[in-house]
Amino acid sequence: MKRNDWILIAVLTLIPAILLTGNIIAAQKIASPCLVITVDGSTFGIYDLNEDRIIDINGKNTCTIKDGEASMTYADCPGQNCVHSAAIGKEGGSIVCLPNRVILKIENAAVTAERPDAVTG
């Protein structure tokens, strides 16, 4: 075979290999649980639960990610229901600040038998 043939083989095999790797990485990224913050229905940001950080949400709310869990650590609303909500982690769940229209939600939650589909009360 000529040199060009080898180049052709290399290029033609590399392209799908790159595509496949990219797809696997993207799939892993999508599949792992992450925190999605929405404000008034629009996505404010998507965050990795494994990375400790403090997120300021328009100066009205503060979300803290620590040890794989997210909680609302500050809200300027009178009720403070969101601040009194249990932290959410990879098992799923959401925290809602109704007056400020802020939702913290876990996407791609790990499937566990314990977590209910909804909570009453």
Binding site: S85, A86, A87, G93, P116, D117, A118, V119, T120
Partner: peptide, 14 residues
């Protein structure tokens, strides 16, 4: 479907 019963006076979601 599974529905959790909120624990009164505890964090929401507990």
């Amino acid at each position: 479907w599974t529905v959790g019963i909120q624990k009164p006076f505890a964090d929401r979601g507990e």
